[in-house]
Amino acid sequence: MIGRAALTFAALTLTAAVAAPWQWELPTGVTAPIVRPDNPMSAAKVALGRRLFYDADLSIDGTMSCASCHEQKHAFADGNTTRPGVHGNAGRRNVPGLANVAWLPVLTSADPRVTTLEAQVAIPIFGLTPVEMGMHGSEREIPRRLSRDACYRRQFRDAFPDRNGRIDISSVAMALASFERSMVSFDTPADRGALLPEAVNGKAVFARACASCHSGPNLTDGRFYAILPVNPVDRGLAEATERTADEGRFRTPPLRNVAVTGPWFHDGSARTLREAIDRHRAALDAGETTQVLAYLEALTDRSFIENRNFAYPDNPCGKG
């Protein structure tokens, strides 16, 4: 059903004019995401961000990379309820998948102030609630480590010719954001119109019972709701807004690849998708829930999960 067309990202800045242009490969009808003008996409930047994504030197003791929690086989979610940080501190929230994050208006479970992928990078690397990668207080360590590597020096020069290849936290964040924006996922049975009969019925039930919030191409409205009882340990949106009305509110999660991103909910407390659906109290009978489950399974993009362009880069600077 969906034809594929390549949209060439316009080279509007000097940086983009120097670096190799980036081509979005998007289905017909899908427009390219908005990209920060100070961080235009380039193939070199995406390649650098891909390597950084898998590099555990971004954590204090070299044991945790972005990919430690964002695993491709789970559509870059985790498979665990939560994940402890480098010092063993308990994780706080379930790891979200990364499909189509370039289009998402809200990037975390409960903080609408984080609106760019560049800004989000700081949360796992430097954050303290909880400590994940543990680099708080060691901000100069990442540039120091990366600068020791000749391949990295070359990659930063290629990715940031306008910054003379400077290796700093800002360029690390820009490269990671570029790689994450390249994580495009629009090739599911649902996208192709290849739904089995039960999933067809499930799509209709979903449209009636779920799509008021799980709406749009990524099945999220980007808004915040309280589905589960308020937990004082994690106040959700209220932690950012300090409004009582926001207690226990969390982002409507996007549902692309949802069948492989479990466990579900912001706290990973739903062990099965059926349990996650039931907790919505959406007045579905068991048969309708089964149908919705079939539809949700059809939101799995195998080509995304198996795309070698998103995998660990074994030879980032070529042989020799």
Binding site: N89, A119, A122, S170
Partner: peptide, 20 residues
Amino acid sequence: MFNALIAAMLLQVAGAAPDA
């Protein structure tokens, strides 16, 4: 740009519990 974001974020966070 990025340093300002980090600073803003760290204003919100509390100290981490030491390893036990």
